[in-house]
Design a protein around this nucleic acid. Structure first.
Lengths: 224, 224
DNA sequence: AAATTGAATACTGTATACAATTTGACCATG
DNA sequence: CATGGTCAAATTGTATACAGTATTCAATTT
């Protein structure tokens, strides 16, 4: 019997649309035209609407009754609210997980290396998320993990800019390294401190980016 | 123009179904038959499915592709995971909010009195939630507030048993009182400590309840 | 008697159709 | 030239229809 549940169409649509929002293909604040988007994706409106509703729950969209779905704009305000929450959730999950096993430390080391070598910004985000999840893989509080995953999705749009800059990548990998050495010393509290620092380092550069140029694409919703 | 957005059918359905889950009208672990439930609610399946998907995001239901929606059972495990998260979120929100104004303290005092006098368990939950939200009303992190509200909904099913017992109500009001006196003394840290204690007090009795009798109603999904 | 297969049935997932509401353009009016 | 009203087109919300997938249960085989 199905151990891996095959996602249905609406779940696949959700991923695709989320991608488009993250990339800016669907401009911030723009209204989503269900008919056009459905035609573009070559699906009907029903599963599309299910996907859009799910994205509302994720915080990527907002919905106004009888007006439609709108892309939640990237904003310094939202970002300044989301990131501190991760800095609250992640350390707690790590504390509950305890120190990683020697085997896991090895894996983490390899993952960090892969991150350092990765040229593509989007892949870097995925690797970074995987890295953080690996630390808390043994966390007994599954709902907390669910929550962390949810917030990883919400921060994704912002992190794209962060991981494009090699200097930021270097900072991140450095922080990660500090976590690893603390773990090898068996000092959980120091690991947690390093994690908090890591999560804090992201804030400044992203706020800067949000302040200045913001996003390039603006109007361009989707073609007719 | 519409300051208060009138909810559409699917949003209203969501509330109704959530209610039924909380009450146990839809038994834990039972599969939801969309056709029957739609007929029962006198709506079509489309908005019902939108509502059910939203409830999945809320954690009240789970969905298995091509199998359908299932009522997430109340379990000691889930509860033990949810409550500590509230004990993480609420104090942080309170810290960000700062001490309440004298005016707000008065209002809180009145709210606690109302809670103490309330005979109905369901109303008590609503009043208790309102009480907690009043403390953090000034929290600048709106997303954190959103999250707290979300978890209030998730804990609701469990708290019903808690607030039925007058002894638990007394304990809660007592904790609340302690928070108020600490606030009047201008000692935020002591308020936060009292809040943590308040949130912790709920755990034991509910676990006990979950261990023994559990819920009365069991089979009874919905009538044909 | 137990296991297995296969057809009938029930149910979910998706598409389409229809109703209700909003939007925007056009024109009349001050 | 601005303002407001009316109507058509566009768009969302809901219902219904259909297709594909699970489940059930009886018939058949071992």
């Amino acid at each position: 019997m199905d151990l891996i549940a095959i996602p249905n169409l609406s779940e696949r649509i959700r991923s695709v649309v989320r991608e488009r929002i993250v990339n800016g293909d669907l401009a911030a604040d723009s209204r989503i035209n269900e008919v056009h988007l459905a035609r573009d994706l070559e699906v009907s409106r029903t599963p599309l609407r299910e996907a859009l509703n799910a994205l509302v729950a994720e915080g990527a969209l907002v919905t106004k009754p009888r007006r439609g779905f709108f892309v939640r704009p990237l904003s310094a305000e939202e970002f300044q609210q989301i990131y501190p929450i991760r800095a609250l959730l992640d350390p707690e999950a790590l504390r509950l997980s305890g120190l990683p096993t020697a085997e896991r430390i090895l894996r983490l080391k390899a993952m960090n290396q892969a991150l350092e070598d990765e040229p593509d910004a989007e892949q870097r985000i995925l690797l970074d998320d995987a890295w953080h999840l690996e630390w808390v893989a043994d966390c007994p509080n599954l709902i907390l993990l669910e929550l962390i995953r949810q917030f990883m999705l919400r921060t994704r749009r912002y992190e794209l800019a962060y991981f494009r800059d090699p200097r930021n990548l270097a900072t991140a990998c450095d922080d990660h390294h500090r976590m690893l050495t603390a773990a090898r010393d068996g000092d959980l509290e120091r690991v947690i401190e390093a994690l908090k620092l890591n999560l804090t380092h992201g804030i400044e550069p992203i706020l800067e980016w949000l302040g200045e140029g913001k996003r390039p694409k603006e109007v361009h919703n989707q073609e007719e």
